[in-house]
Design a protein around this nucleic acid. Structure first.
Lengths: 137, 137
DNA sequence: TATGGTCCTTCCAGTAAGGGCAAGGTCAAG
DNA sequence: CTTGACCTTGCCCTTACTGGAAGGACCATA
């Protein structure tokens, strides 16, 4: 199977597949006589695994660890779970930060006339200590 | 005012201040006789503005636009508001994605024994079509 | 057989937003 | 006079890729 077929099967671009190989996340595939990469079904499974883990927001470093665990039949599910739990915490922290940003910006946008006039509580908020310039004007 | 003082005043590291200057986000400050950067109060205000906008999650490119608007006394608050609204949408999309990830992972973690045994629905989910391996085992 | 178009290969460079480190100049204190 | 704490520039490292150039390979058609 050549690289573009694998790309279609997995949804990972050829460029990215080569990149994963270069950082040794993927094993090196066989080579056809013409030098083209020649992938097996197992390679495709590995790539699908990587892609799934990426979609769950795991960093490539974590994906590498998950891949190790996946291929180690003596793994402890505890290790996988701990990795996932750490990741969940990071995701939740990020959600929290983004929600704060969203709430603050929504307040500011509501206060902003949004017309031809220059006065703008959004810009004001970047200068002053308080977060929302609503009470003035 | 030398760079480390400005760094303390604004919470932006000296390194980052120089970086902002290099990408022309900040104007070049005066130089003292010894070649050291010498910042004015206005420079500090600009940096504080940048820092505030960064804390709201705006990309440096957007921060540049906001800075232009801030310094243009003939600006229309509409332009600022539109920029902010676009950003809010991006933030909300990101929140949504992260919530999906969190929910999926939480389900998987709940299903995982998390002990010495290798069987793990989290890993399974990365291989199979369904998102949660809960129903099996 | 020439030609064109589409694949494949490698390597180089760039992105965002800085961090780290090195080599060298400066300054103030003891 | 020396030590430590600043400052300067410059270059590489990070994450997770993407784009492009230059050069082979393969296939169909005129």
């Amino acid at each position: 199977m050549n690289i573009s077929k694998v790309a279609k099967l997995t949804g990972v671009s050829a460029k990215t597949i080569r990149y994963y190989e270069s950082i040794e996340l993927m094993p090196e595939p066989m080579r056809a006589e013409n030098g083209y990469r020649d992938y097996s079904d197992k390679d495709v499974d590995i790539l699908k695994f990587i892609q799934s883990a990426r979609k769950m927001g795991f960093a490539l470093k974590d994906v590498g660890n998950l891949l190790q665990l996946w291929q180690n039949k003596n793994r402890a599910s505890r290790d996988v779970r701990e990795l996932a739990e750490r990741h969940i915490k990071e995701v939740e922290n990020r959600i929290f930060e983004l929600q704060n940003i969203r709430d603050t910006l929504k307040n500011l946008v509501e206060c902003c006339h949004g017309d031809d006039r220059p006065d703008c509580p959004i810009l004001n908020s970047f200068v002053k200590e308080n977060n929302c310039g609503c009470e003035e004007t």
